[in-house]
């Protein structure tokens, strides 16, 4: 089930979009960087930092907007409309 529960500002959307893209970029970069590569350490650290920032954004926004949530569900954002949806696993 998918239900609209709120909306974020364009600036807030851009923040999570950049983190989303960075996380995807890092995960695909990780496929071609060996653990003996000079980039490896930096990449691992970066992935950790980006994931934390990503989660922080959701925590921050959830606290700010007080979106409805459930235990067996998660939120998603529509990058075109900036709308937040609650997805309940059936």
């Amino acid at each position: 089930m998918k239900q609209k529960v709120g909306q974020v500002s364009p600036e807030e959307k851009n923040e999570i979009l950049a983190l989303f893209e960075r996380r995807n970029g890092l995960s695909e970069l990780a496929k071609i960087v060996n653990n003996d590569d000079v980039l490896y350490e930096k990449l691992v650290t970066d992935m950790g930092t980006t994931t934390t920032k990503f989660q922080n954004w959701w925590d921050r926004m959830a606290a700010k907007y007080q979106w409805k949530g459930t235990e067996n569900g998660h939120w998603e954002i529509d990058f075109n409309t900036n709308e937040i949806y609650l997805i309940v696993n059936s």
Binding site: E21, G25, I32, L39
Partner: peptide, 19 residues
Amino acid sequence: CDYIKIQLYEKQHHWFNSY
């Protein structure tokens, strides 16, 4: 493509977050 990804990352190019 591998070269692009590595170069974007190494150079801390803003396109790494949007390509």
